[in-house]
């Protein structure tokens, strides 16, 4: 038996801007649902009306507790109080490594871990429980690399996008799942309030950039990038000898930093 709490936020589709499950939060829930049996507590701090909450229930979660608060509030204390009130206390707190839709700073799990006095491990893709109350975690690093870690319970884990994909959300369970709303008092997020907010406009990167990393901006971006005419930019070698061709490829890869030196 292992009791697990999961923090779920509302994501935002990059193209339509519509509310959806936040991709890494959904992966955190997926991991929680695939751990050995035990209590699963799912918490969301924010508006209880977001349709995206049902998407989490549709994954087979029976109940989701919403700490109802207005936008722009700092959910840390409310979540902390709610987590402390859980009895028995959970031994694992799971969440995505980055929300999408709020401040998106990835700070919340750290603040909670610090306040609870728990260890925290970010960017986890796999979790196995040992018999001695510890767990083996696997962290995703850049370029498909992996790092294993051991940590004793209780701990906080944030989930990386490379973790197993979340199961799809189904209509039936989403409709049946319970949303329990608890109104809480949350202070205004002053740091956020001090910031100027405006719509994001893409600006070109200043530098020659390598891989844009895992997250891509949706199918449209991919299509645009895939189909945009690149003619005239590439270098073309017609009918070189195999050795010339090999050297050209080698030099090119070297230049890209793909080859061990």
């Amino acid at each position: 038996m292992v009791d697990v709490a999961v923090l779920l936020s509302v994501g935002r589709h990059p193209v339509s801007g519509r509310a959806r499950r936040a991709p890494t939060d959904a992966r955190a829930l997926e991991l929680a649902l695939s751990l050995p049996p035990g209590r699963r507590t799912a918490l969301h701090a924010g508006s209880p009306d977001s349709p995206a909450l049902r998407d989490y229930l549709g994954m087979g979660l029976a109940e989701l507790t919403v700490l109802a608060m207005a936008e722009g509030r700092d959910p840390t204390d409310a979540l902390l109080a709610r987590l402390r009130a859980l009895s028995p206390a959970p031994s694992i707190l799971l969440t995505g490594n980055r929300a999408e839709g709020g401040e998106d700073s990835g700070m919340l799990p750290y603040s909670l871990a610090h306040a609870l006095g728990w260890a925290i491990v970010p960017d986890v893709v796999a979790l196995t429980l040992n018999d001695d109350g510890s767990a083996e975690l696997v962290q995703a690093l850049a370029r498909g690399q992996r790092r294993a870690l051991r940590v004793a319970m209780p701990f906080v884990v944030t989930i990386h996008p490379a973790a197993p994909a979340p199961r799809p959300s189904a209509f039936g369970p989403a409709r049946r799942g319970r949303i329990t709303v608890e109104a809480v008092d949350a202070p205004e997020d002053t740091a956020l309030a001090a910031c100027a907010v405006r719509p994001w406009r893409d600006r070109p990167k200043r530098l020659t950039v390598g891989a844009p990393g895992g997250g891509s901006g949706g199918a449209l971006d991919r299509l645009r990038a895939a189909t945009e005419a690149k003619a005239g930019q590439g270098r073309l070698l017609v009918g070189p000898t195999p050795d010339e061709a090999a050297r050209a490829i080698y030099d090119c890869l070297q230049e890209q930093g793909m080859l061990p030196r």
Binding site: Q233, G234, L237, D243, A245, A246
Partner: peptide, 23 residues
């Protein structure tokens, strides 16, 4: 070929061994 940053018109079966040798 149009999509490529470096495009080489050659037989794959000839270039692969040459590149292996070079490596």
């Amino acid at each position: 070929i149009k999509r490529a940053d470096l495009a080489i018109i050659a037989d794959a079966q000839a270039v692969m061994p040459a590149l292996i040798r070079l490596m």
